[in-house]
Nucleic acid binder design. Structure first.
Lengths: 341, 341
DNA sequence: TGTTAGCACTCTAATGAATCGAGTGCTAAC
DNA sequence: GTTAGCACTCGATTCATTAGAGTGCTAACA
């Protein structure tokens, strides 16, 4: 059996209608809703076919039809595109520039959640070109040295080192020069054990300090193991009966709170290069455990060269994909441009 | 009417029983539960009196009694104390030391939530002795200066400043000396406009840089306006029917997610000095809007001299106060000691 | 005078029967 | 190929009934 044009139109009508109402769609509704001028009986036959083809299903015998994951997939891939472009304009979703990136991203998550009425997540950008740019040791007081490490992309890390005896200015200067001349411009892979040993040797009695600095450097350079993720709109789960029963809501909210599982999404997004800018996961396709009844839509933004992060929306499978996609795209574009002038 | 000893015992029995079962307590239950050897009829009379006194109430005519806020208050203030001390020991609640304070506090929140089965919050410590300890300007590259600011308590802030023309080492050294000699050891209040003007004048053509640094200093010194709060165990709200209906749960979870409203709690705790180490808010007493049906128990910890924060538990009014208090006390003590050896 | 047994009464929660209505699949006629 | 018609299914709603827990009050008792 083929998905001929009439079936396609009917399927589209079913999905559209279901997205609007959230109720299973009956044959009579479609008979009136479309301008095919077919009776409900004919529609029923077609619906039976569509069910056999796997695009729709019946919650129970005497109910209308709802889209299956396969149906949604077809909708998202083929049926949606036309309308999407028209919707593109939206004014409400306007980011205000903030001094601190974390504030900006929190704001972004909140905006997304409020605008779409779904739950939203924003991951902090991860830096991928991690070369050391600058190291500085300073004496803060008798027992404390401050190591400041700047990485390409102007990301800064500090570590306080404790020393037993106070270092004089000259020694400090020497150490600073030693560290900078040897380490600047290097990436994680390029700083090997041999080099570290050589450095320590040159530092002589201060090898311990060098060791401390190297640890801090390693810490600063490696991709932040605990990826910051901001979330907003957990309460929106309650708006959709299919997600709102205690068990499911509890699971969703835990996942959302722990944030750890959401990392999967980010990884999936940043590693995969063979996808468009917007990624849609429907039901069982989602990489996040415990969200099999949801759909997730994500986009990748690039705050500055090499600083990529993910924004995403999590909602019921019957979410308003068009609205979500256009929201994400709009926000992504803003994030992409904000620091690029 | 007085609260004589017999009434006191009966009230205590009612509350204990209600805390255990979560069901309204009937007169027959009390008649058997206590060793007063009174019939249910007598208990009924006493219960009517207790209700008149405002310590208990009836959800509806044919139900047993549940404690009122006033009843809980009496319980927490007077009845609980005896048992509390016995419970004190617990092994499960053991913090592991972590390098990063935020990890430690996240861990603390999680431990609390898991152990008590209520929702938990932990506020990051606020620094109260904010004197400037050390400033350093460094040249990162041609356009960028890095300002590192260390405040008493070894809290570090960085700001990247953009400059139009590259500064030479000598100028940089001069600026560093200028800033350090004038600003070190000062608190927010002591850095006034006159001083800033004088500094700028001395800096000459580099006054703009000084302005940037001063801004950064102000930022670093002032109590962190956006207080970090870690939460865990939002799903636990679902465990208690009185909090689990959609409306309430939605509100609670939003408050918990936004975290902003929780600041009230922290402020309340850190500012008020006339309270014991543990604070209990029952029902309408809570300073957090939208949690009037909850009880909140908090404790103040001091991670290091002057670094005070709040830990707290949020649950239904019929929470196991004894367990919660002992858990909080245990964790507070651990936090107090962890970095103090 | 305080305590208790007894009883009528109240109110919730649970159960189950009856009904409604939306929607289906199938058949036969157009 | 399309459609009208009809029997059928099944969830949701309604309603009445019942069971049970608990109360307040009265009258008797120690």
């Amino acid at each position: 059996m083929q998905l001929d044009e009439r079936k396609y139109i009917i399927l589209q009508a079913i999905i559209r209608n279901y997205l609007e109402t959230g109720e299973p769609v009956g044959s009579r509704t479609i008979s009136k809703y479309t301008d095919l001028n077919l009776s409900s009986a004919t529609i029923r036959n077609e619906m039976a076919d569509l069910e056999e083809l796997g695009y729709i299903l019946q919650p129970h015998t005497s109910a209308g039809r709802i889209p299956s994951d396969k149906g949604y997939r077809l909708y998202v891939d083929k049926m949606m595109e036309e309308k999407e472009r028209e919707v593109e304009e939206r004014k409400e979703l306007l980011l205000e520039k903030e001094d601190k990136v974390d504030h900006l991203l929190k704001q972004a998550a909140k905006l997304l959640a409020n605008n779409t009425e779904y739950a939203a997540m924003v991951s902090a950008p991860q830096y991928h070109r991690n070369k050391l740019k600058f190291i500085q040791l300073s004496r803060v007081d008798a027992q404390h040295l401050l190591a400041v490490i700047v990485v390409e992309g102007n990301v800064i890390k500090n570590t306080m080192l404790t020393v037993e005896e106070e270092l004089n200015d000259e020694t400090l200067l020497k150490l600073n020069i030693l560290l900078n001349t040897h380490l600047n411009g290097l990436s994680m892979e390029e700083i090997n054990l041999g080099m570290i040993a050589a450095l320590k040797q040159q530092a002589g009695i201060h090898s311990e300090i060098v060791a401390g600095v190297i640890d801090a450097v390693a810490e600063a350079i490696k991709a932040d193991e605990d990826l910051e993720i901001y979330t907003s709109g957990a309460k929106n789960f309650f708006k959709y009966p299919e997600l709102a029963d205690h068990e499911r809501a509890s699971e969703l909210i835990t996942t959302f709170e722990e944030k750890q599982l959401l990392t999967e999404l980010v990884q999936d997004n940043l590693s995969d290069d063979n996808h468009t800018d917007i990624q849609v996961y429907i039901g069982s396709e989602t990489p996040v455990a415990g969200m099999k009844d949801c759909s997730i839509v994500t986009a990748t933004y690039e705050l500055d060269e090499g600083m990529k992060g993910t924004i995403g929306i999590i909602g019921p499978k019957r979410m308003d994909y068009e609205k979500v996609v256009s929201n994400l795209r709009l926000l992504k574009n803003q994030l992409d441009d904000l620091y690029r002038r």
